[in-house]
Structures are given as C-alpha cells and as structure tokens.
Nucleic acid binder design. Structure first.
Lengths: 420, 420
DNA sequence: ATCAATTAGTTTATAATCTGAACTATATGG
DNA sequence: CCATATAGTTCAGATTATAAACTAATTGAT
C-alpha cells in the first residue's frame, strides 16, 4: 500500500499550516474589521479592502461567506454625497446574541449581548448563594435562562451561546470551578452544557474580575488598551489586560492582586498566607476597621449577629458621607495599602494604568486620594505616570464582559463553512 | 484606469494573510522541529512529516528550501538496523552562529553560539564600565568582536548577527537604552549597527535578566517551561518565562521584581520609591547589614573608601563560610523579604517556579532556607508547590541567552527565498 | 438629456502552496 | 534474488489570494 493519508499526529505535535488556514485568518480579519469599525457609517466592502490590505475580490468572497454564515448582514446603501457608485454598508448580524450570566455571593444575574458587544437587556436577581449547592444555583440560573430564551424567540433573536462569570478561579476549558472561596465551591464541575442545549457555542466559564475587565475595555470608549483591573468584591479580584488582550497566566490564575504581600509576616489571610492585601484592604478589613462591623471575633467570644452584606455597604457609605473619622481612616488606610500593591503589580507587569471596579469604584472619592499618595510613595521618582481610573460599570459588568468574551472569540475564530 | 494594485495600507491596518504566509509558517515549523529534536539520531524528512503533521511531499519541498538558505544540512545516512531505505539525517547548519555580548558593571564579555543554541566559546574581559561613556564601551566591544570575527573566519564559521545584553531597560526595536542606572546610561542610542556590518541580522539589544532567563531555559535540560527568574546583580533584575516564551510586558519592562514593595512606606530606594525589595535584599543592603561595607553614609559623615565590588563579594562569602552571625542574619533577612516579593509575584503572574540567578545563586545555601520559610508564610496554605531552583549558569548566561534569543527568532521567522 | 468621471463590486485567468496518490530509490532478510 | 519495508520525489488536483478587466451605479458638467 503506497497511499498517503494525512499522518497520524503524535502527542505534542503541532497542527500544520494548510492553505485553508489563510482563509480562516482572513475571515477573522474581515469580521473583526467590521466589529471594530468606529465611524458612523457602516463599512463597505471597498473600505474593508483598504483597511485589511486584502483586495476587493478577496473581501467580496469573504463577506459572501460571512453573510451565508449569518454573522454579517448588508445594511442598505451608502450615500456620502460623493461621486461614484454607492457602496453597501455591512454590519454584524443584530439578531445574533450571547447570553451572559453571573453568579456572585448575593445575586444571580443574566443578560443578552449582541455581536457588537452591546448589552440588549439584563436582570439582577438577589439570592444568597453562600450556602447553596451548585445544583441549586444552576437551577436558579435555569429559570432566568428560560425567561431569556422566550424573550429571544419573541424578538426574533438567536442565542448562539452562553457565558458564566463567577468570583473564583476557573478552568474555562473544562467548565471547572477550581476554587471559589466566597461561594464555598472547590473543584466542582458545573453542568453548564445542559443549560443552553442546541447552541453553536455552548456555555463558557469565566472569572468575575477578568470578565469585568473585558467589559470595561469593550464598553468604555476612552478605555486604555493596557491596564490592571482591581475588583473589590467580597475578596479582592484582579485582571490584567495588555493590548486589549486578557493576560490570564499559564494556569488562568494571573492577576490575583488580592494576595500580593503588603506586610511580610503580617496577619493571617483566609488563603493561609500572611500579610496579603486582602487582610488590609478587603471588605471585611475595611468594615471592621471602620466600626461598621464588630472587630474580629476570637474563638471564645460570644457571636454577635452581623448585618446583611447589602446593609453593611450602606452603613459604611453613610459613615463616610457623615465624615466619621474612624470610617474615613479605615478607607484611607486601605487605600494606602492598595496603592502599595498596585504599585508593585504595575511595575512587575509593566502597566501604567489601574482601573478600580466593584466596591472600590463605589468608595472612589474617599479611597483615591490615599491611592495617589501611596502610588507616589511607592513608584519611581520620575517617568511613571500611574493613572488611576474608576470603572463606571456597575454590577452587570461581569455578565456583559463574559458574554463579550464569547462574542470576541467567535469573531476571531469564525466557523469555516467550506470544510468537508 | 481600472488596474488594481495591492491597496495602500492605512496606518493601524493589519497585514493580510496571503497564501505565501502558509509556507513561511511551515518553514518555521519544520525548522523548529529540527531544532527541538531531542533524540540521539538526527531527524529524517519522514520523521519530520509525522511530527509536524505535514505530508512527506511538503516536508521535502520545505527542507530543500531550508538547505538552500544555508540553515539546514544533511548529516549522512540513518541506519537503525530496520528494514527499508535509510533516511537522511537533518540538522541545523553547524557553521552558522550568532555573536552574543554583555556589558555589565565590571566586565564586558562575548561568545559565539551556534544555531542549536550551544555556546562555541566565550571570554570575559574585566572592565569598570561604571564611569565609561557608551562610545568607550562599544569601542572595547569592537576589539572583542574583531577577535571573534577572525576566529570565525579561521574556523569556517559565518556570523549571522549579534546580540548585546545590558543591565537595564531597553527598547530592542530601536537599539535604545532607556534606563541603565548601574551603567549611568539613560536614553542612549547605541551605535550597534556598525559593530557587525554585512550580517544578515544586525545587532539586537536585550535586558540582562531576560537574556539570562532565556539561557537558563535553553541550556538546562530539566528547566521548567514556566518560571520567574530573579537575578541578583548590582540591582535585582527579573524576568518572566511562560511556556518557554519571555513575557516582557507592553513596554518591555515587565519582571522588575526588584521594585516590588515589601515594606509600604519603608526606606527610600535609588529609584525614588519607598520599601522596594532592593532596599532590603539588594547587594548594597546585604553588604551593609552584614558589616562587610560601612553602614549607609549620611551626607555630613566622612566618606570611607569601600573595597572593590569583586572583593566585597569574596568578603561576604568568607564571612558566611566562617559562620559570622551578622552576615548570616543579613542574608537570612534578605531571603525572607525576597521570599515575600517572590510569593507576591508568583501569585500575581500565576507561576509556580522561581529560578535564582546572579549573586542569589551564589548565596544559595545561605539564602534558600529563609526563602522557603518566607514562601510558606506568604503563600496559600494548600495547593501551592512553589519550587525554588538555583541557576547553575555563571556570568556568561546573559551573553549566551541574548544570542539564543536571536537564533530562536531566526528559526521562528526564517527568511523566505521565493519572494520577488 | 447625455456623457465623462468616479467609485463599488464581480468575473476570470494566474500563481502559490498544500495534499494525496503513484512512483522511484535503497535497504533487510529469507 | 526477490518479497517486504521504509524514504523520498513527482505530479495532478484542490484552495485561495492576486491582478486586471469588466459591469454597475451614481454625480456633475455640458
């Protein structure tokens, strides 16, 4: 037998470059060019040709395929008052969307995001997930999903896939929650496949801080391309965006700024280390230092009942507005340590901008002065313009960002039709 | 006029995917497959076909081109005692090489590295570069280069390009030294192009810690693919390697672990910040704490003459061997703070292995216990197997690594012959 | 109204490059 | 000396981008 099939690929081998890969790459180029188009008028084939460097002929062929796949639609004629034949505007199909979801400590949320990354709608469902088993939570999600599927059907929308953000370490590939201390989930495989059956993309899992960072980058027009995102939730989450790309590290756990050491040999953190940022600037630390919660309980001490999470935030906020010195001091102190961790991280990662999200964004006006003071103390004397920005996005950031991640992945890796 | 040239590409546009790109990619695939081949026997075309997933026909064609380019050579026949026609072994052309160089505080060094990444020879020339102007140093380099060019001519070697490592921040693209405090160079364009005229690749510039990390990864067989490299030179340099790839950050300055804050509001660092790792574990800090150098001079105090750098190291080493408590304490303390910074960085970057180079490697047996203690104090309680390794490479690491970087870039982006 | 000028988009021949099958080359072992 | 086996080459076929020619649609001047 002298037949020569494609070789059986041994483990660790690479995928070869075939001629067809060029098309896949160019499909993605055209698609992302359409997605990133900023001007008012939607782009024409000719404009895409100049932008991508491909010829008009190639763009025509590629666009035809994208239209057949239902990713792109023609949007009427172009008229700029110029001479010549008017072009046909092209845009991402507005009827395709992705369902974003978030499970956090005290709520579950969901919403639809279209291929342009814009949220269509969303809802937040208060729910205490701290003591819930995963199946209960996915059950609650299931109800939300049914609502959104009905909405989609009514509006003529097609849901291509889903995305779930959770506050913890995840293994996206395998829908595995590695470690979510605030939900009490550890090494849990979520049954996500069943949540959105019969969709092209299935359901992907994301870390909450990463998803929020993506949402910031995609939703805020003046967002920088490179920044460190710090999210104050129950813990302190973080994410690193470099050139609009998430840096998730070799195992997907990069950006965990909450466990940067700000006091070697300091107080014990819930993670087991000592002197982590979280012990100085975490929600609990701020609450207790500000007198909103009782100080740390010792084993022997009688247990006092703490207020509900939502109320606690309101209490702290009220104290700050009232100018109570203990609260102001607590936040100032947290900001100073946060600044040290941020300075360390920013220099280590070579990043010049920090975006504060979650509760840190809410504490903005009180925490930012300390942050700036700290950044000045802990940054190089010259040539270090550390910018500190507050994220304007609220609690829906994570679900929107998770969905946007899925959309972006689809646009960068469009399904290839011509494949036997 | 209806002619249709390739469109003029507007700024910010992408390069399109042409059919020819596939070949470029596959040339690189075959080349790196040859380079990474580990077994005794050199690979044959057939083996490369199975490994890369390409067909024998494609591999034949690609190998022919690589041989024409002088990157690959045939190395006699294969005989494994098996049946069938014996294959022809393929290897990287052993007569091609790259000249690696390093300028450090108290020496200049150079050496040749072949396409397999193996050093052919090297030499270190003691020289105090602290007070030298760049032209003087490049002059001294020029003399070394002449020697190596003669050597290459005599041995029938072709020098394809050069690589220079320096202890400081560089802009590789533009041969620009942004900030090298220990050499006193700031914003200096080195005239590197003239150093190796008429070479295919010219001369590239690298950061010393990055280059040393590359050398570790390429030269030590059991080296992990992902690690944080910490280099104790006059300052504390660092580098991040993820999946065998340098992570240099958006501006090329990532990995600067020397300026991670280990004591918020601590003593001032030469960089202008307060509480940097360098102030606690830098060479100077260790020397002064161990009593080998006089304590920090205050402005009014009379200046005492400190010994030469080389002697100081010897003094410290002697004190440690003699078991002098002050020296042991100083190193232990430095190790503890180093451990805190390393723990922070490792968690932020999601890295599980740390490699110590430069003086830290030399202090190994005295500093590692404190490092382990500190890592235990500052890492999560479970599931965090931080490995600490000492680099066995000496002062030639940086020049070798710089050259290896250039070689690797050549192998991953081989020049395409069929281009009009 | 008509036509030149201009721009958008399509058609078609050509070139690059990988694949797959057939073929040649060279070894081992009975 | 021949069956078997493996290495490597040759060549037709499939994809896909390019370049040039062509068709389509619009503006503005005559």
């Amino acid at each position: 037998m002298s037949g020569q099939q494609r070789q059986r690929v041994p483990p660790g081998a690479e995928t070869p470059g075939r001629v067809g890969d060029v098309r896949r790459g160019n499909l993605a180029r055209v698609l992302t060019a359409i997605a990133r188009w900023t001007s008012e008028q939607s782009p024409t084939r000719a404009q895409l040709a100049t932008l991508t460097g491909l010829t008009k002929a190639s763009v025509s062929s590629l666009v035809t395929e994208l239209i057949e796949q239902g990713l792109v639609v023609e949007i009427g004629q172009h008229r700029d008052g110029e001479r010549g034949r008017p072009g046909v505007g092209l845009g991402l199909d507005p009827s395709r969307c992705v369902l974003g979801m978030e499970v956090n400590v005290d709520y579950v949320s969901a919403g639809l995001v279209n291929l342009s990354g814009q949220p269509i709608n969303h809802a937040v469902l208060p729910r205490d997930n701290r003591s819930s088993r995963p199946e209960e939570v996915t059950g609650a999600l299931g109800e939300l999903i049914t609502e959104y599927r009905n909405f989609a059907t009514n509006q003529g929308l097609t849901i291509l896939g889903g995305a779930l953000a959770i506050p913890g370490l995840v293994d996206s590939r395998n829908s595995l929650v590695l470690h979510a201390p605030n939900l009490g989930w550890d090494g849990i495989r979520l049954g996500l496949a069943g949540l959105l059956p019969d969709t092209l993309l299935g359901v992907s899992l994301f870390n909450e801080a990463n998803a929020s960072a993506v949402a910031y980058r995609q939703s805020v027009p003046q967002a920088p391309a490179t920044f460190l995102f710090v999210s104050g939730e129950v813990g302190i989450g973080g994410a690193v965006v470099i050139d609009s790309e998430l840096f998730t590290g070799p195992h997907g756990a990069a950006g965990e700024i909450g466990h940067v050491i700000v006091q070697p040999g300091g107080s014990p953190c819930s993670c087991g280390a000592h002197g982590c940022l979280e012990t100085m600037a975490g929600q609990d630390a701020i609450y207790r230092a500000s007198g909103v919660l009782a100080p740390v309980r010792n084993p022997g001490q009688p247990v006092t009942t703490d207020p509900e999470p939502r109320e606690t935030i309101a209490l702290l906020h009220a104290a700050l507005v009232a100018g109570e010195p203990q609260a102001l001091d607590a936040v100032d102190r947290a900001g100073y340590y946060l600044g040290a961790a941020v300075a360390s991280s920013a220099r280590l990662l070579d990043v010049h901008t920090v975006v504060l999200g979650g509760h840190f964004a809410a504490l903005g006006q009180w925490i930012v002065p300390a942050l700036h003071r700290s950044a000045a103390d802990h940054g190089p004397a010259s040539g270090w313009p550390l910018r500190i920005i507050l994220s304007p996005l609220g609690a829906t950031a994570a679900l929107v960002g998770a969905a946007q991640s899925v959309v972006r992945d689809l646009l960068e890796h469009p399904p290839v039709a011509t494949q036997r």
